Amino acid sequence: MFEVRRLRLLRELAAHGTVAAAAQACALTPSAVSQQLALLEREARTPLFIRDGRRLLLTDAAQVLVTHAEIILTQLERARAEVSALAHKVQGTLRLAAFPSAASALAAPAIAACQAYHPDLNVVLSEQEPGPSLVDLRMRRLDIALVYEYNLLPRLPHSGVELEPMLQEPVMLALPRTHPRAGAEGPYSLEALRDERWIAPRRDDSLRTVLERACESAGFRPRLDYISDDYSVVLALVQSGLGVSLVPRLVVEQLAADVTLRPVENLSLTRTVSIATRAGGGADPVVNALVLALRRAARQG
């Protein structure tokens, strides 16, 4: 008989690649994870791992177990959701994570509407980037997460998670209003900005990667003179004429920045915002209450 907790650890090892990373995801020490995986190997009565330096490579038997672990964990989530649905009540505490621009534009109005309609429901919001949010969601430290994906980058890993696209927004070129080309209309060529100073986010390293790849596709490496974790700083630097940047439209709308937004010529740049929930949890009325409120907030926005 396999213990569910150990199967969950095996899934995280498969997702993260190293015992140290899996331990961090599970809020355990590496030695504790190693001990539990050794016990799982004994339960399986067949080798599950091949040590390669600091990494544990999964054998074919381990890969079979990972596949079944996903099914088992999804079925357990489905069972919890269906039992919760029998109560016909929306109450308790729900844990939501959202990245900053979604927290203000989508999460705030959705939480207010949801709690007005369901006064016995308490929604706890934390601000988090997509990667950590999905880990916490899989580990049941969160119930819902708002995440994003850029079309120039690989899709987010979503084992054990269901992603529901909620909106797709363009990633726009932000120019100071004093820029010589700010008054023109239509798409603008990145190649014409090769000598500009560029401003990039630090925390949203995926957007910085999109910026770098977009510029490289135009034949140059951007000169990143300013990097900030705060989008209000990024846009203030643009507004002050200190450089140009690429930003999702939602960010600019939320901060009401006085900058010129232009689409990029010959290159489609988009960011898709999705609702992430645990696979199998679709019947949970508590989760569904906030999901519906988030959908409404996205439509009204």
Rank of each mutant, 00 (worst) to 15 (best):
18 T>Q: 09
58 L>H: 06
249 R>V: 03
20 A>C: 07
214 A>Y: 03
70 E>L: 14
145 A>P: 05
6 R>F: 07
197 R>L: 15
6 R>E: 12
109 P>F: 00
187 P>I: 10
140 R>P: 05
189 S>E: 14
185 E>W: 08
292 L>K: 15
25 A>Q: 04
296 R>G: 00
50 I>A: 10
72 I>P: 02
44 A>N: 10
103 A>T: 08
77 E>P: 02
208 R>K: 14
32 A>D: 08
244 V>Y: 00
28 L>T: 06
165 P>W: 07
120 D>E: 12
292 L>A: 13
88 H>C: 14
76 L>N: 09
43 E>P: 08
209 T>E: 14
101 S>T: 11
267 L>M: 11
208 R>D: 11
289 A>I: 04
71 I>A: 13
60 D>I: 11
301 G>T: 10
99 F>P: 00
227 I>A: 15
249 R>I: 01
156 L>E: 03
67 T>P: 01
21 A>K: 14
292 L>D: 15
93 T>G: 02
269 L>P: 04
149 E>M: 09
253 E>W: 01
123 V>E: 06
144 I>P: 07
275 I>M: 10
112 A>Y: 03
218 A>K: 06
290 L>V: 04
189 S>I: 09
64 V>R: 13
162 E>S: 12
204 D>Y: 00
238 V>K: 04
164 E>G: 00
155 R>P: 11
201 P>S: 12
218 A>C: 07
44 A>S: 15
6 R>I: 06
237 L>Y: 07
191 E>I: 11
3 E>P: 05
